[in-house]
Amino acid sequence: MRVDIAKGILEKNDTLAEGNRELFARNGVFVVDLMASPGAGKTSTILATIAALRDRYSIAVIEGDIASRVDAEKIAAQGIPAVQINTGGACHLESDMIRRAVDTLDLSEIDLLIIENVGNLVCPTDFDLGEHAKIMILSVPEGHDKPYKYPGIFQISEAVILNKYDTVSVFDFNEAEFRGVVHDLNPSAPIFAISATKGEGVDAWVEWLVARIEAAKVVQS
């Protein structure tokens, strides 16, 4: 006997993501999901963003890693609430993990929640977490050809950060080609070249983020 199901395979995740989204809206929390390869500079970018915005917004961070508390400790050392999620092998974060992490935070005290997804350019793309914006970070040493190989993540990101820009000449990174391909894949996504550890270029990224946060507030109120 044939039985129709006609459901999204990720429906469970999507439903839980919707619940997260409502929870964030109710508490006036803006949520960004940072996605990148291992070592591209997600934690460094978060630290630079915290340094730039901590006087303006109350910030919290969720750190997703397969194992260890290393990244959460780096954030906590800045006096910023940090929750570590260990996925124990899973290659991406899912909505239920975010919900459990969020339940340990006092959302009413938070304006900006930054999620560091597990280092991976493929898997996080299909999983809605209830965030306002997915942002992808590519670091210069990974090469300018990455958008050809991993188009999905460039297409679903609202903005692209090109990190470790201080090494652009060392790695013969063809920035014009990179910008062209990303633009073809996702014409509306701005590209911010930054050096997270040196703080260079971070202003433009932060200015975009602030505009995005304030725009969401207008929609919510």
Binding site: M1, R2, V3, I5, A6, K7, G8, I9
Partner: peptide, 12 residues
């Protein structure tokens, strides 16, 4: 192009 859908099952 981004579909992830379960359509149907055949059971006894």
């Amino acid at each position: 192009g981004r579909e992830l859908r379960i359509d149907s099952i055949d059971i006894d």
